[in-house]
Amino acid sequence: MQTDDLLKQIEFIKEIDKLKYIQRRTKLFNSDRNENDAEHSWHLAMMAIILSKHSNVEIDVLKVVKMVLIHDIVEIDAGDTFIYDTTKNHTNTDEELLAAKRIFGLLPDEQGDELIAVWEEFEAGETAEAKFAKTMDRLEPLLQNASNNGGTWKEFDVDYQKVYDKKKVMQYGSTPIWNYAENLINESVEKGILKKENS
């Protein structure tokens, strides 16, 4: 039984290597190279560890780390949906749930069920851990775009209101981080790297 579990776990480990090939729209800090999903997930995990004391409430940091490490694994099958996409919704889809069941289903049942539950908790965004994980997920690309002279905001003609509306969810995970982010958004408008409205 232990050998069977190990073989399933190795298959899962091989499968998630594909995350390294899923390109995101955002680029690395001060760079013109696109970030991939594995890099994004690693960065969020580090951010969750480093910034956890700024959570609005006490959180299980390990659970947050699990959430951010696995939240985009479904994109191996479903692909990355750009947060400012106007044709496809950036919320949990049937397609993503099928992907979660297939990929996490490679693991032994107990482990697979746990990771699907953690993924669903992140997607629902209702627990303290999910709220903080989503704060990390919204903060990283904001920092990247600010470092890249507007980055994807300029590239895809995204205005202030769209950015603000997508980022304000951060306040539910961390008021201090949201205050920082809101200031950064406003500074980006002042610097001319984020326009106040579409023209």
Rank of each mutant, 00 (worst) to 15 (best):
I49W: 05
E75F: 02
A130R: 01
L106C: 08
L98E: 14
D80S: 12
K134N: 14
Y84G: 11
E75Q: 15
L62Q: 13
K18P: 01
I103Y: 06
A133E: 01
S188K: 01
H40N: 07
E126A: 11
V74A: 14
I50C: 03
N179R: 10
T86Y: 02
Y21C: 12
L194S: 10
V61E: 06
D113W: 01
D85K: 03
M46R: 08
T91G: 03
Q171H: 09
H71S: 07
E126I: 11
E182K: 06
K196V: 11
A100H: 11
F104E: 10
S188F: 01
I116G: 09
V64Y: 00
P141K: 02
E126P: 01
A133C: 05
Y172R: 09
H54N: 13
D37Q: 10
S41Y: 01
H90F: 14
K88M: 08
A117Q: 13
T152A: 13
A146F: 08
E39L: 10
V68W: 00
A48Y: 00
E190T: 10
G105A: 11
I83G: 05
Y164S: 08
E58T: 14
L98N: 14
I50H: 06
G173T: 06
P141S: 09
A181S: 15
L97E: 15
A100K: 08
V189K: 04
E96T: 10
A117F: 03
N149F: 10
K88S: 06
R102I: 02
F156S: 05
I59L: 07
G125T: 05
L142T: 08
T91E: 11
Y21N: 15
K134Y: 00
G151D: 09
T81L: 06
T127V: 09
D165T: 13
E95G: 07
A128Q: 06
K162I: 08
R24Q: 14
K20V: 05
N34G: 02
E155I: 10
K88Y: 02
N56F: 02
N36R: 00
Q2T: 13
D137A: 12
M1T: 13
K134D: 01
A146T: 08
K14Y: 12
A38R: 04
G151F: 01
E75P: 00
L143Q: 09
S55R: 04
S41V: 04
I16N: 05
N149V: 07
E197P: 00
T87S: 15
V118M: 03
K18D: 08
F29P: 13
I16A: 06
N198V: 14
K168W: 03
E114V: 04
R24S: 07
D77Q: 12
L115H: 07
R25V: 12
Q161S: 11
P176A: 15
Y84W: 15
Y164I: 13
M170T: 04
I193R: 07
L143K: 09
F132G: 00
I83W: 14
E121P: 01
E35A: 11
E120H: 04
Q9P: 01
I103D: 03
L51D: 03
Q161R: 06
Q144G: 06
K18C: 05
E120G: 05
V189Q: 04
S55M: 05
L184E: 10
D94M: 12
T175Q: 12
E187N: 10
A130N: 02
